[in-house]
Design a binder for these strands. Structure first.
Length: 254
DNA sequence: ATGGCGGCTCGCAGCCGA
């Protein structure tokens, strides 16, 4: 089983890249984030023509997540139960072949003294609380998405200011609490090149200079860990014309 | 590295992302 995650930064703009990537990579499930379109504007027909089902939790302008798959999604859930008043569309979960797969777009947080950072930490707490129950219901589980957290110093270019957004101690502690629920960072189950990033700023030639962060992750439950055979960051899409600023991350399960 | 890019919007400037 092949599961991937990709923050596309506007599905409308990136649809040609996504269709090409799906055709070439043939994943079982692709978790998308930052659709920036509502459910009515979601390009379901174009995807269906290529043979892909979609479970969508869309939002205009910001956020928006989806699960694309060859098999139809089962037991679809949108949003975090603990954030029922939150209008931001950041999570969708469904079951595929007995594996629970979550596509999540974690809040950015902007800066540690921002209201958006408080929201990020609240969201992380709600995720942790829900995930504990979700893991009990679904031992075979993958939490995939744009976490907006670089979990260790090896996951951020040295130029990223220590202690700031994406690398701060409270964010990393929240990430560690997710692992404590019985999850593994699939990327780190395998030997990887140094300076492996999943996001590069559009500005200042960051991709060409390989200045970035590893903030897109696939966390696998303990029950799935023995099945993991590979996890890689697929850089070439970041080099396309008019790319997303994120690259896909791909997990292979035996 | 703090801006520079690129997406969005009852748009033509400002917000947001990371």
């Amino acid at each position: 089983m092949k599961i991937a995650t990709w923050n596309v930064n506007s599905l409308k703009v990136r649809l040609p890249h996504v269709l090409d990537w799906l055709a070439a990579q043939q994943p079982d499930v692709l978790c998308l984030q930052e659709l920036k379109c509502d459910n009515a504007a979601f390009p379901a027909a174009e995807l269906a023509s290529a043979g892909w089902h979609a479970a969508v939790n869309g939002q205009k302008t910001y956020n928006g997540v989806a699960l694309l798959s060859r098999q139809r999604a089962e037991d679809v859930q949108a949003d975090l139960p603990g954030m029922s008043d939150d209008p931001q569309k950041r999570l969708i979960a469904a079951t595929f072949g007995g594996v629970r797969i979550i596509s999540a777009y974690f809040p950015n947080g902007q800066a540690l003294d921002s209201d958006k950072f408080a929201y990020k930490m609240d969201w992380l707490k709600a995720l942790e609380d829900w995930l504990r129950a979700e893991l009990a219901r679904h031992p075979r589980l993958v939490l995939a998405g744009d976490f907006n957290i670089a979990p260790t110093d090896a996951d951020a270019h040295e130029s990223w200011p220590p202690g700031t957004i994406h690398v701060s101690a409270p964010e990393r502690a929240a990430f560690a609490r997710l692992l404590d629920l019985g999850l593994q960072d699939a990327f780190r189950l395998f030997a990887q090149p140094e300076k492996s990033w999943s996001w590069w700023d559009y500005r200042m030639g960051a991709f060409r200079r390989n200045i970035g962060l590893r903030i897109d992750h696939l966390l696998v439950s303990d029950a799935l860990r023995p099945s993991c055979t590979a996890c890689t960051i697929d850089r070439p899409p970041r080099a396309l014309e008019r790319p997303s600023d994120h690259a896909p991350v791909v997990l292979e399960l035996a």
